[in-house]
Amino acid sequence: MAVLLGGCAMGGAMHQATLVGQCAETDAACSRRHPLAPLAVGARFHPDVSAEIAGTSTPSLRLESAAPDILSVEAGDLVARKAGAAAVLISTDDGSVVDFVHVWVAPVTHITLAKRDGERVSGSLGLAVGEDVTIDPALWSGAQRLSGDEDLTWTVSDDRALAVLRDGSAGRRRLKARAPGHSTITVALGDSKAILDVEVVP
């Protein structure tokens, strides 16, 4: 799997290790490309940790959180629990700290929708029968885009006109136009929601 390594790494305070998101190089809209941003409350971040220490390859490393009530580590993932900041310690298997990164967690204030190439979609969208479009939601805290994967709720008002299909990514969906008609897609997380009207034409 191609993984982004440059330009989006969280560099450690001791300049020895980095955390990057596990994200396909060609996936321009991958929400996990923004590891420098705060994690959304409730989101899960899949890090890829590596170290660069003179004279050695990367040793076996593990992650620990300094404040698990804010940010916990579960099966190698960072899970954002509540707003705040927590140091993520990057340690060797004997507990010796190689580096650490302070990671921020922020609440979601609103959700936006974008096509896979990053172009924002809002209001309404027209599709011809048989056409499909991939929609990628983004989570925001004010003007700041948040990172991490969330379990968003997708609802469709008329599934005869439009099908909402999973495409292998936790947040993304593919909208497939089935039959002429009108359908409303709602993407929600708690009180935050984004609504998209889709008109399907013959």
């Binding site: 001791m14 020895q16 220490i53 003179a54 004279g55 050695t56 300094a66 310690l89 340690s91 060797t92 507990g95 010796s96 700290v97 190689v98």
Partner: peptide
């Protein structure tokens, strides 16, 4: 305050 040994490779 928790204290941990660290490896600083310099």
């Amino acid at each position: 305050a928790e204290v941990r040994p660290a490896s600083l490779g310099v």
